[in-house]
């Protein structure tokens, strides 16, 4: 007797007992999943969209991380995937194998913010080279004091805080700083919960950490942002909306995206949601403390869809140091 068959028969009877196998056909549902970084933006859009539709169209937003979101997206389980980095080669292959075509839409910019304790008086700014010295894998067990990073700094222990390895923020920061995604020392305090990092840095005068800009703006009274010089000798700039917009806060500003399935777009409710997203992105992105893109980029997004320009502009790789201007050009080219 086949055990699997029995299970299936049991399942089938359970479904029949439950009164129907699938979601009711009349429910107009837009399913979104993916990055926790993009979540606040998409959530804000979804909230206002549902109010504007008076509940006719329903939107759900989950958080499974950028990678987890793409897994579901490429299995065709979701209509839209939130992503804090461009789609990777392996994910492109998975989508292709499942026959899922998609449009890539940049929706905002985020500034990764390096923070330290307000009691830290010695650091005035940091360069990517100094960040690399602190965070590269070779630093593990070796770079233990501030003095080792810069001889002018005190001989006090260096305590590092950062997001865990599943996060897109970790991927971007490691790539921007060490040149290779996920290449980081392992002996730092890692947490998937950014509030843990905030508390950690706020309590220890020798601490340094990094996370998204929104967490810094909410905790300005407890933390100090470090100005970043894009290279040695260049002026150091603070993370801020203006500095992200004018492209001077580099290499730690990054674009964030939504990916939308071409097949789902044929459903009117998904198209309506997308139009609403692009129309209201500017105001709502600002409200949740991210940096909006120039209005014309949202327009380009809609044009790309109208012209059916599928796929990604990034070729399966993350690009570090892309300014908003670069992104505009990249989008306009198509």
């Amino acid at each position: 007797m086949n055990f699997g068959l029995i299970l299936r028969a049991f399942a089938a009877s359970a479904v029949v007992a439950a009164g129907g196998a699938t979601l009711p056909a009349h429910a107009q549902l837009v399913k979104i999943d993916g990055s926790s970084t993009v979540f606040p933006i998409t959530e804000a859009i979804a909230e206002d969209f549902q109010q504007s539709q008076r509940g006719k169209i329903r939107v759900t937003v989950g958080i499974s991380g950028t990678g987890g979101g793409f897994k579901k997206f490429c299995r065709g389980e979701t209509d839209i995937s939130n992503a804090s980095r461009p789609i990777l080669k392996s994910e492109m292959d998975a989508c292709k194998a499942a026959g899922v075509d998609y449009y890539e839409l940049p929706v905002a910019y985020d500034a990764l913010t390096v923070v330290m304790n307000p009691g830290n008086t010695w650091v005035k700014s940091l360069t990517p080279a100094e960040l690399k010295k602190m965070w590269e894998p070779a630093a593990q067990g070796k770079i233990k004091t501030w003095k080792q990073v810069n001889a002018a700094w005190p001989d006090q222990p260096l305590k590092l805080f950062g997001p865990g390895a599943d996060s897109g923020t970790f991927d971007y920061f490691t790539e921007a700083v060490t040149g290779k995604a996920k290449s980081s020392r392992g002996d730092f305090t890692a947490s998937e919960d950014d509030n843990v990092l905030v508390t950690g840095v706020a309590r220890d005068v020798n601490a340094l950490g990094y996370f998204g800009f929104a967490y810094y703006t909410e905790n300005k009274d407890k933390l100090k942002a470090v100005p970043i010089a894009s290279a040695a000798g260049k002026p150091a700039v603070y993370p801020s909306t203006e500095n992200v917009e004018n492209g001077s806060y580099q290499p730690l500003s990054r674009p964030i995206f939504i990916y939308i399935s071409a097949k789902s777009l044929q459903r009117p409710e998904v198209k309506q949601f997308l139009d609403f997203y692009m129309k209201n992105a500017d105001a709502l992105v600002r409200e949740v403390k991210y940096v909006p893109l120039p209005q014309r980029v949202y327009q380009y997004n809609l044009e790309h869809i109208a012209k059916q320009q599928l796929g990604t502009r990034f070729g399966g790789e993350n690009k570090v140091g892309l300014t908003i201007d670069d992104l505009v050009k990249l989008e306009a080219k198509l």
């Binding site: 009164g19 699938t22 703006t217």
Partner: peptide
């Protein structure tokens, strides 16, 4: 039909709120 509906539960709502800035 409610059996097949998407959902959230209390602990997840809490978790989501605690991890906000």
């Amino acid at each position: 039909e409610w059996l097949m509906a998407p959902f959230t539960v209390m602990p997840i709502q809490m978790f989501n709120w605690t991890s906000r800035p």
